[in-house]
């Protein structure tokens, strides 16, 4: 504040249009993007307004911190790491949404010890992404138990969503109509989905070009009709229940 640094050099990088800085950030690792936030207030803003969220990679870093040595404390450490990760994701998403920019991509990989406890947080994240016009959504939920996380109905109102990738979730039939007006690609892995629901998606998502399913359960047969653009079902593998 008080220091008088003599510097004739001009900071041109900070003056670049934000979308160019964001394009620069898109070439960096999640970790490296987070590091830029402490460069200056301008960079803090640029980092917070970066519309691509990859909490999949960030999750790895969180889990790497303080690797447990004793088995007894493993679950406890895991619980703390997951909680810290959830808090971080939560804070980042809320700050971004305050800016009212549209979200390009949200990718989350998370392990949960207790689905009941955490599902409202995940619901909130999907709600925020949907409200902010997310285009790519990639949700991978891993649990230690057999139960799967049920996706909230609000996901079906993501009108701008073009790519949806789900793993370890349950996709239940919504009470409302499906409004995936832009959905082109749908990938389901370890997803519980009923025949009726599959039918609904393939017939109501008019732009759907690619449907990929592996290790899914809940449906014995797949009838794909009225889906004129549907061109590829690469890994069709249905697990019987």
């Amino acid at each position: 504040m008080g220091d008088t640094v003599e510097d004739n050099e001009i900071d041109r990088i900070s003056e670049l249009p934000p979308f160019i800085v964001h394009q620069i950030m898109s070439h960096l690792l999640v970790k490296e993007v987070a590091q830029t936030s402490i460069l200056s207030k301008r960079w803090q803003y640029l980092q917070r307004s970066f519309p691509i969220f990859d909490f999949d990679e960030a999750y790895r870093y969180f889990m790497e911190i303080s690797c447990p040595i004793f088995f007894r404390s493993k679950r406890g450490r895991l619980r703390i790491n997951i909680r810290r990760f959830i808090e971080y994701v939560n804070a980042s998403l809320l700050r971004f949404c305050e800016l009212k920019f549209s979200m390009q991509k949200l990718r989350i990989l998370i392990s949960l010890l207790d689905i009941k406890e955490s599902s409202c947080v995940l619901d909130k994240w999907i709600g925020l992404a949907t409200e902010n016009g997310v285009k790519e959504l990639d949700f991978d939920v891993r649990t230690l138990t057999d139960s799967a996380y049920t996706l909230p109905g609000i996901i079906f109102s993501a009108k701008l969503l073009t790519t949806l990738k789900l793993a370890g979730c349950k996709l239940e039939q919504p009470s409302d109509t499906i409004r995936f007006l832009s959905l082109k690609s749908l990938t389901l892995n370890y997803v519980c989905i009923s025949e009726v629901m599959l039918q609904k998606i393939t017939s109501e998502c008019v732009l759907l070009e690619e449907l990929s399913m592996s290790n899914c359960w809940g449906a014995k047969r797949v009838h794909v009709f009225e889906a004129w653009m549907l061109v590829e079902i690469p890994h069709m593998k249905l697990k019987k229940m």
Partner: peptide, 9 residues
């Protein structure tokens, strides 16, 4: 390298 001046205390 980028001549960025920190305005954080």
């Amino acid at each position: 390298f980028f001549d960025i001046k920190s305005d954080f205390d």
